[in-house]
């Protein structure tokens, strides 16, 4: 049921037009951060206001929306954002990745491959991949203009010199279509390969920082690395204890105060789907445990 006190999808039409223009420019220049006049939303900055504004600008009444945080549909902030759009846009919602037409996410890309017709909207805290190397926007903007990404390579190389490997495990920087270095949002680097040549449209919204950027479908996205230290997508060296999946990203759950722990899929829909299909892990009910 839509709340009639608000315009469809909350934002007024002028704001949506402004965001929509920014989205089209973002798609035209993949990986480039388009400034937009982010609005104050009824949820706090840092809690997904950029993603919410992008979703609001893209939603149609026919959409089926899925919202995840940490890969899970039932985390509190995901529940809160999903309720917001049920109330203000009256759209159908789902937890099934395959049924969703728009998926708003924080920190994960679903395990199930996305397809044409789907849009993945990322919530982004700090869109500037160079920000922690150079705090000034005036400087980083110039670095993007000049394709001056040496600083980033120096940082990664220093990691190797000190630790023997690149010590960045999430928000791992990528280069888009050979031009712009981009922050993929704080997804674990395990998810980075899914950014590239993805059939879905990927949109990134940073509300507080007032930036929108995008990856069109089938866009080439390369994780930064060195020939002698190639990028590797890593995860915990375990299988899911509930569904037995060997290739999904895992959460480590502490089960007691004596060092007991288990590993479960971070993508709750993926895990539930596998369990429903009869897959069982080490600790599943009726499983091999």
């Amino acid at each position: 049921m839509t709340d009639q006190a608000y315009n469809f999808a909350y934002l007024d039409e002028q704001t949506k037009r402004m965001i929509r223009r920014a989205l089209l420019k973002a798609l035209a220049v993949p990986g480039y951060q388009v400034p937009f006049a982010s609005r104050e939303m009824p949820m706090p900055y840092g809690w997904g206001t950029g993603g919410v504004q992008v979703t609001a600008a893209c939603l149609t009444p026919e959409d089926v929306l899925k919202v995840i945080d940490q890969g899970a549909d039932d985390t509190t902030n995901a529940v809160s954002i999903r309720k917001f759009f049920q109330r203000t846009a009256g759209v159908a919602v789902t937890e099934a990745t395959g049924e969703a037409t728009i998926i708003q996410t924080r920190h994960r890309i679903p395990e199930q491959p996305l397809k044409a017709g789907q849009i993945l909207v990322y919530q982004v805290p700090i869109p500037e991949p160079l920000r922690f190397l150079e705090p000034r926007e005036t400087e980083t903007r110039k670095m993007h203009e000049l394709e001056e990404y040496g600083l980033m390579h120096v940082k990664l190389y220093e990691d190797i010199a000190r630790h023997g490997q690149i010590a960045t495990s999430y928000a791992y920087p990528v280069k888009v279509e050979g031009r712009y270095v981009m922050d993929p949002s704080p997804i674990p680097k395990f998810d980075n390969p899914k950014l590239s040549v993805n059939p879905a449209i990927q949109l990134f919204g940073a509300g507080r920082e007032q930036r929108i950027y995008a990856l069109p479908p089938f866009c080439n996205v390369v994780s930064l690395d060195f020939d002698d230290h190639p990028f590797r997508a890593t995860k915990a060296a375990h299988d899911c204890d509930l569904c037995g999946a060997k290739d999904s990203y895992l959460d480590e759950v502490i089960t007691d105060d004596a060092g007991g722990r288990m590993y479960v899929c971070s993508d709750t829909d993926f895990c539930a789907g596998r369990q429903a299909a009869g897959h069982a892990g080490r600790l599943a009910a009726g499983g091999k445990a």
């Binding site: 706090p44 900055y45 840092g46 809690w47 206001t49 945080d69 940490q70 890969g71 985390t75 902030n77 924080r106 920190h107 994960r108 805290p125 495990s169 999430y170 928000a171 704080p186 997804i187 674990p188 680097k189 395990f190 507080r208 890593t234 915990a236 990203y249 895992l250 959460d251 480590e252 971070s266």
Partner: peptide
């Protein structure tokens, strides 16, 4: 305040990677 307080939201996926 939004950005400061957002660090109390779940970050366990990134923490797991770390």
């Amino acid at each position: 305040t939004g950005f400061l307080e957002h660090i109390k939201l779940p970050h366990y996926v990134d923490f797991q990677a770390e």
